[in-house]
Amino acid sequence: MSTLATTHTRFGTGIYHGKLGMWVFLASEIMFFSGFFGAFIVLRNLNIEVFTASAHMLDKTVATVNTAVLITSSLTMALAHLALERGEQGKFRLFLFITILCAFGFLGIKSFEYATKFGHHIYPWTNTFFATYFTMTGFHALHVIGGLIPMIWMLGKSLVKGYPQEMHHRVEALGLYWHFVDLVWIFLFPTLYLIF
């Protein structure tokens, strides 16, 4: 009894469990992508000519447009959460819908880029640059798809019976994930397309 009474457990970080859980997950995601960036730097230093020549084959314009698309989706995701927090169902639906459109837009543009590369007979096994390029952008695209699934589910739910205002924390947690996906692209973009 006395040990129980003297054990001082501290709660009250002021952060609800869903958000803290999402941040723990995102912390592990940072380490996940760190491995790719580490591999990219080591391989680049060993094959600088191959990397420079290959990176110049990428389409900067398309990637810049895709960056803008993803940044826009981050804004609308943040606005969607803000709208639901205020109980504005219509705005919430609209902003979530735009976010989903942007996510599909990003995937569409990325598919176009991949198709162009395949059309030029460039594959992940072409050289070490394209091996890392397809691995990094591929895993990033998988993360985009992973974000789309709960977004579509939330939009569907809000259209059927309205998304409960008191559950806006779930939208915030999903938003954290979505902004992280945007963050990864913010680093991938200069690394793969710009620094060569």
Partner: peptide, 27 residues
């Protein structure tokens, strides 16, 4: 900018920043 404003680190408990800072430091 994304982490501070969009991801609400500016508004949340400051302890969260130290927590998030650890993997960023490693990266």
């Amino acid at each position: 900018l994304v982490a501070y404003i969009f991801m609400h680190l500016k508004f949340d408990n400051k302890r969260l920043r130290y927590f998030v800072g650890i993997p960023i430091f490693f990266f």
